[in-house]
């Protein structure tokens, strides 16, 4: 097994899995019915991506299936960004988290559709259509909330300020990524970083949101298996039945 590729596949998969899970938690809590439905569509797209990627990871692994990977791993084995495990504190946090991640996904999948790994490339091509739509929606919400009322402006600025530190992780180049980048499998992080900032700047300007400074961030990154306090609770819930009945099939 190419352990680099395996790790990389899980990083992609877990970002979608955990963000999709967060959206599933929010069902019936939306600000109005139309928005509740739309958020669920985004969640379903993300879980579909997670499933495809976890299947691919399971194939590489050879001893487990995608459901084991989704529900059976230890916390340190999950490789998602800290950003996506951030809880649904309110709609402002939810949509800011979504926007920051949507921009990353669009830029990343645009590059990955030309990945030398055929499976990654094909999943990226399919996912790109979905995340393009997600970004369209979340950008519009950032603009509406940023340029809506004074209250919504202040709230969304606070969400951006608070979540900003978690964006640092998106552009961290480690050995795994570097090797895969050289092989043409992983996307070029310096390109991603540039394009990500350009898109974020564009939307923030229309939304009258001020981009915060990037503070120093001291946790072990999620992609390396370190997690925030929120992850344990998330997994306790998500893995509940698997933990309670390890052998049962549902």
């Amino acid at each position: 097994m190419n352990t680099d590729l395996y790790k990389y596949t899980l990083r992609l998969a877990d970002n979608s899995l955990i963000l999709g899970h967060r959206l599933s938690e929010y069902i019936s809590c939306g600000p109005f019915l139309e928005e509740d439905l739309a958020l669920t569509n985004t969640g379903l797209d993300l879980l579909g991506q997670a499933e495809a990627l976890l299947k691919y990871a399971a194939e590489q692994n050879g001893t487990v299936d995608e459901d084991y990977l989704a529900f059976g791993r230890e916390e340190y084995e999950y490789a998602n960004f800290h950003l996506v495990e951030y809880p649904n504190e309110d709609y402002g946090y939810l949509i800011t988290r979504q926007f920051l991640m949507d921009v990353f996904n669009v830029v990343n999948y645009t590059l990955l559709k030309d990945s030398k790994d055929a499976m990654i490339a094909s999943i990226a091509a399919k996912s790109l259509k979905e995340v393009t739509y997600h970004l369209r929606r979340s950008s519009e919400w950032m603009i509406r909330l940023g340029d809506g009322t004074q209250e919504s402006h202040d709230k969304i600025q606070e969400c951006v300020n608070h979540l900003w530190m978690y964006t640092d992780e998106m552009f961290d180049l480690d050995e795994v990524h570097e090797r895969l980048q050289k092989e043409g499998i992983a996307s070029d992080l310096s390109v991603i970083k540039k394009q990500w900032h350009a898109k974020v700047d564009e939307v923030f300007e229309i939304a009258t949101i001020i981009k915060p400074e990037l503070p120093k961030y001291s946790l072990v990154y999620g992609k390396d298996g370190g997690h925030t306090d929120f992850m344990g609770y998330l997994l306790a819930e998500m893995q509940f039945l698997k933990n309670r009945f390890p052998k049962e099939v549902w």
Binding site: L47, D67, A70, F71
Partner: peptide, 16 residues
Amino acid sequence: RAPSLRSKKILMAKIQ
């Protein structure tokens, strides 16, 4: 707390 990816997606689609 749905126990599989399949059941989670189905349940979400149904509630939606």
